[in-house]
């Protein structure tokens, strides 16, 4: 039975990936061990800490608790895929506000933050604190993580406004 291998097709950070895998391969192992995308961390491996958080079809999920084969056909964004032409607002903000200490939980913190920027209506400090339930930071750097997510929200809005202004004036 150990020999069953099944094909899986995933779009990871915009790139289509096809592999034959053992069904028991967890998504986090697929990312780290098969694709060498080691930005996604394994903290607890028991679904508690959120260090392994990635976006699966735009939803923040714990990749240690999803089989790669369950994600077949899906789009995945990992911390390596955040940066486009410029740093993602969440990256910019974590740098500016010192949102990390040892950095271990940071990939999960940034992916959860990136999710919250797009999914929770108005991001008040209270909602951010509530939603950070899904992240354990062993350095207990929560204050700066909250500030970083707040700042990322501002950066996102600033960029959108700048884009609109540029469009309005016919530039860009």
């Amino acid at each position: 039975m150990a020999s069953q291998r099944i094909p899986v097709t995933l779009t990871i950070n915009g790139q289509k990936i096809v592999r034959d895998i053992e069904p028991r391969t967890l998504l986090v192992h697929f990312l780290r061990d098969e694709l060498n995308l080691t930005g996604t961390h394994v903290g607890c491996d028991t679904s508690q800490c959120g260090a392994c958080t990635i976006l699966l079809d735009n939803q923040a999920v714990k990749s240690c608790t999803v089989l790669a084969i369950q994600a077949d056909g899906s789009e995945i964004v990992t911390v390596e895929g955040l940066e486009q032409e410029q740093l993602h607002p969440i990256q910019e903000a974590f740098r500016e506000k010192h949102g990390l200490q040892c950095g271990f939980c940071t990939p999960g913190a940034m992916m959860l933050g990136a999710y919250l920027l797009n999914h929770n209506g108005p991001l008040t400090e209270e909602t951010i604190r509530e939603q950070l339930d899904g992240l354990l930071c062993r350095c207990t750097g929560y204050e700066n993580i909250v500030r970083s997510i707040q700042r990322a929200n501002e950066i996102m809005n600033e960029r959108q406004n700048a884009q609109q202004a540029a469009r309005a004036t016919g530039v860009g």
Partner: peptide, 11 residues
């Protein structure tokens, strides 16, 4: 952490 092997079927 890997689970024990199993056969996977998608309905």
């Amino acid at each position: 952490m890997y689970t024990a092997p199993f056969e996977y079927r998608r309905a």
